[in-house]
C-alpha cells in the first residue's frame, strides 16, 4: 500500500474546510508505518492561522481484519467522553465519498510512541507505572455500562460469538491445513466459559503496540477498530499474549506481573478476574492471532495488497501463535 498523501491532501482539505466552515490547508501529510489494517496518516492542517495536528485513518483495499470505521469512531468517542486516554475523534465519512474509502479523522496525540514488536524492554525502568496506568484505564473502560447506542454501533459478541467470528475468518482465508487452529476451535467450543459478568465495551486489540507511552506515562490507547461488546476477559488475555511480551517471560506486555495487572484492572473496573476462564481466553487469544495472520497472508496472496507487513504476519506471528496455542492445548488437556 503506497503513501497516498499527495493524492489525499486536496480532498482532505476540502472535507475539513466544509466540516469546519473555514479554509483549511494541509501543511504536511505523511503515512505512518504500522496499522496494516488501516492506512494511517499524520496530518498537519492549518485553519485560520493555527496549526492543528491530526491523524487520518482510511480503509485500505486489503487488510488483516475486516472492521468498520463507524464502530471505531463510536468506540473512540465513547472512550474519550468517559475520560480515557484516547485520541479525540473529529470526523467520520463512512460512505467513503470524501477520500475514496471510509475514513475518520482524529486529533493527534502529542508525544509518546508505540513499542515495536521486537523491541526489548520498551518502557524502561518506569514500566510498572505504564502498566498500572494501562490496566487501570482498561478497567475504567470495562466499568462502562453499554447503552443502547453502544449496542447499535458495536458488534455484540459473547464468547461463542467471538469464536464463531474467528472461525468464519479462518474458514474464509485458510489456504491449507490448519491443524492448530482446528484443534483450538474444537477445544474452545467444548469448553465455552460462562460470562465473567455483565458484558462490557471491549477494546479488542489492546497490546503494547497499540498504546502511546512516554516517561512512565500512558498517553493514549489507539486502534479501536476491533471494539465490540463482550467479555472483558478477552482484552486481558490479548494484552497478556506472549507475542506482545517483548521477550519478557515474566511481565505482561513487558510492564507488570500478571497479578499486579489484574489488581490494577480489578480496582478500576470493580469486576472480578475470572481465574476459571483464564485458560480459555488465553487459547482464544492465540486463536484470534492465528485468524488475523491467516487473513493477512491470504490478502497478500490474493494480490489485493502488496504490503510486506501482511507477508510478515504469515511468517513470524503466525508460526509464533501456532506454537503457543499448541503448547496451551497440550497443557489444557482434553
Amino acid at each position: 500500500m503506497p503513501d497516498r498523501s499527495a493524492e489525499l491532501a486536496g480532498p482532505l482539505a476540502a472535507w475539513l474546510s466544509e466540516a469546519w466552515r473555514a479554509p483549511v490547508e494541509i501543511r504536511a501529510m505523511a503515512r505512518l508505518f504500522g496499522g496494516a489494517a488501516r492506512e494511517t496518516y499524520a496530518v498537519e492542517a492549518e485553519i485560520e492561522g493555527r496549526s492543528r495536528p491530526l491523524v487520518l485513518r482510511r480503509d485500505p483495499p486489503a487488510s488483516l481484519v475486516a472492521t468498520s470505521r463507524a464502530a471505531e469512531f463510536h468506540a473512540l468517542a465513547r472512550a474519550h467522553a468517559a475520560g480515557l486516554p484516547v485520541p479525540r475523534p473529529l470526523l467520520l465519512d463512512i460512505a467513503g465519498t470524501r477520500l475514496g474509502a471510509p475514513a475518520l479523522v482524529m486529533q493527534a496525540v502529542a508525544g509518546g510512541r508505540a513499542a515495536g514488536l521486537f523491541e526489548s524492554d520498551p518502557y524502561g525502568p518506569k514500566r510498572a507505572e505504564v502498566g498500572r496506568a494501562l490496566f487501570g484505564a482498561l478497567g475504567r473502560l470495562h466499568a462502562l455500562v453499554p447503552d443502547a447506542r453502544d449496542r447499535e454501533m458495536l458488534p455484540v459478541q459473547d464468547a461463542a460469538g467471538r469464536l464463531a467470528w474467528w472461525q468464519a475468518a479462518i474458514a474464509a482465508h485458510a489456504r491449507g491445513p490448519e491443524p492448530v487452529a482446528e484443534a483450538a476451535l474444537r477445544w474452545l467450543a467444548r469448553h465455552l466459559p460462562r460470562p465473567s459478568g455483565p458484558p462490557t465495551i471491549v477494546h479488542g486489540d489492546l497490546r503494547s503496540g497499540n498504546i502511546l507511552a512516554a516517561d512512565g506515562r500512558l498517553l493514549a490507547i489507539l486502534d479501536w477498530e476491533m471494539a465490540h461488546i463482550g467479555d472483558p476477559m478477552e482484552d486481558l488475555a490479548w494484552a497478556a499474549d506472549p507475542l506482545w511480551a517483548h521477550g519478557d517471560g515474566q511481565l505482561i506486555g513487558a510492564m507488570l506481573p500478571l497479578a499486579e495487572a489484574i489488581a490494577a484492572w480489578e480496582a478500576a473496573s470493580a469486576r472480578a478476574f475470572d481465574h476459571g476462564a483464564w485458560a480459555w481466553w488465553r487459547i482464544f487469544a492465540g486463536l484470534q492471532g492465528l485468524a488475523i495472520w491467516i487473513t493477512g497472508a491470504a490478502e497478500a496472496a490474493s494480490g489485493r495488497s502488496d504490503d510486506p507487513v501482511l507477508l510478515f504476519a504469515g511468517l513470524y506471528p503466525y508460526r509464533f501463535h501456532a506454537a503457543a496455542v499448541a503448547r496451551l492445548l497440550a497443557e489444557a488437556g482434553a
Binding site: 496499522g35 513499542a115 515495536g116 514488536l117 491443524p179 492448530v180 484443534a183 493477512g296 506471528p317 506454537a323
Partner: peptide, 26 residues
C-alpha cells in the same frame, strides 16, 4: 496428537529477525 502438534508447530517457528520491522500492527 496434542504432543505431536506441539512438536510440529515448534519446529515450524522461526527465530525473531535481528533487525525486524516495528511489528505486525493491524
Amino acid at each position: 496428537c496434542r504432543a505431536c502438534l506441539v512438536a510440529i508447530a515448534e519446529a515450524d517457528r522461526l527465530p525473531p529477525p535481528g533487525a525486524g520491522p516495528a511489528g505486525p500492527d493491524h
